[in-house]
Simulated assay, not measured.
Amino acid sequence: MERRTFSGGIKGKNLRYLQGGQAAPTGCAHVGFVLLDHFSLPAFTQALDTLVTANLLRPNLFRTTTFSLEMAEVCSDLGIVIRPDQALSAASLEGLSLLVICGGLRTPLRAHAELKVLLRKASEKGIALGGLWNGAWFIGHAGLLDGYRCAIHPEHRPALAETAQHSQVTSESYMVDRDRFTAASPNGAFYMVLEWIGLQQGTDLVDGIVDILAFEASRYRRVNPKLRVKMTAPLRDVVKLMEANLEEPLDLAQISGYVGRSRRQIERLFKDQLNTTPLRYYLELRVTEGRRLLQHSTLSIVQVAVACGFVSPSHFSKCYTAYFGHPPSKEKRLEF
């Protein structure tokens, strides 16, 4: 049987179950986090969790290392003490793809000569630089934000504007400008790293991460317009209608009547925004729900097939195998 591939965001939703159809990663990108005194633990964990989730979907894409300036324990803004993996040094820059300076509301904006030198060396090596909360200040103090747009927590905008007079300090929650990645908040840290991952690995992986970590806020849209908007309001209405009618699928004429758009208009929406057809997208929604029910319920295969609108268990099995590479009977059932 010919293997079928999921379209659009449905592929991201199923990414961790499609490992057999993916090529092995060509290399592992290395991300370093420099933890400064009183760094924002929520911002750091948001950034880290995004990378960890990426590895859940596609194993061994990223590895991370935490640094301190003097190989000492670092106290976060929440009073939780972290012991970094190693001290930041010239040698530790080797192999890094991204180096992120993690600051916080109470992180003192104090010049650190060695950090300044190491940031400049990192830039010379082509390592992308990032800053969380007020981390951008240290990059700016090293003279590495000239001509760049950047984000920093509102409390520290005046200080950054003064020390990096040739940069554009924005009011955004995060900013990506070429090889500079800066965020002003924990939420901004999530989207900052998400965009970096997208540049490295593409939008399917981004969709998968969003589906796991930010499904409520970003199920149909991106919080920041720089991230790909996948569905306009008319298309969201159609998809919501499909999701609400999986057990007894509607035909396109019924959908057309409910949303007040012609069949041709609906087909064009799916083609232009998701590069697929309404019928195929509907099938993929039902197959994906079937996978969820098989894994997370005690329903039999027959019951799952009925719940997902398939005319027979054999038709369900055929479609399931085409997308996931194995029949429903081989799906791993989670213990209850």
Rank of each mutant, 00 (worst) to 15 (best):
R333N: 04
K240A: 08
H315S: 14
L144H: 10
N245W: 00
P84K: 03
S300M: 05
Y191I: 00
E155W: 04
R16G: 05
K332L: 08
L294V: 02
S40L: 04
F336P: 01
I139E: 08
E114K: 12
F324E: 09
S92L: 01
W133E: 05
E114N: 13
Y323L: 05
R228H: 14
E124A: 15
L51G: 10
D49S: 13
A122N: 07
H296S: 10
T203D: 13
I209Q: 11
L93K: 13
V239G: 11
C319I: 00
P249D: 00
L160P: 06
L145Y: 09
E70C: 05
I301A: 15
A113C: 00
D251N: 15
I139R: 07
Q19I: 00
A47K: 07
K318L: 13
D37M: 02
G143K: 06
P186N: 08
V223A: 15
R4I: 00
A164L: 08
A91R: 11
A87W: 01
L48A: 11
L194T: 05
V259P: 11
F33R: 10
E2I: 01
N60H: 07
F39Q: 09
R292I: 01
D146L: 00
I80L: 14
G147E: 06
L115C: 12
T26L: 12
S171R: 12
M242E: 08
R157N: 05
Q295A: 14
N60K: 06
L51R: 05
L293T: 03
R264Q: 13
K121R: 14
L279E: 15
L241G: 10
S171P: 02
A111R: 14
H30A: 04
D77E: 11
F44M: 02
D211E: 09
R178T: 04
W133C: 10
V81Y: 13
L51Y: 09
S317Y: 07
K226E: 11
V229P: 11
Y220E: 05
V259K: 08
I255K: 04
R261H: 14
C308Y: 06
L235D: 07
L199G: 15
R3M: 08
A253W: 00
V238K: 03
S40F: 07
G257Q: 13
L132G: 04
L88D: 09
G325S: 09
S167F: 03
Y220Q: 02
A142C: 06
A253L: 02
E284R: 04
V74L: 05
G135K: 03
E73S: 13
R16S: 14
Y282Q: 10
A24W: 06
F44T: 01
V229M: 09
L15F: 09
K332R: 13
V176G: 12
G130R: 05
T50H: 09
C308V: 04
I10P: 03
S171H: 14
C308P: 02
L51V: 01
L299N: 08
N14S: 07
F67W: 04
P154K: 10
T65L: 10
G309D: 10
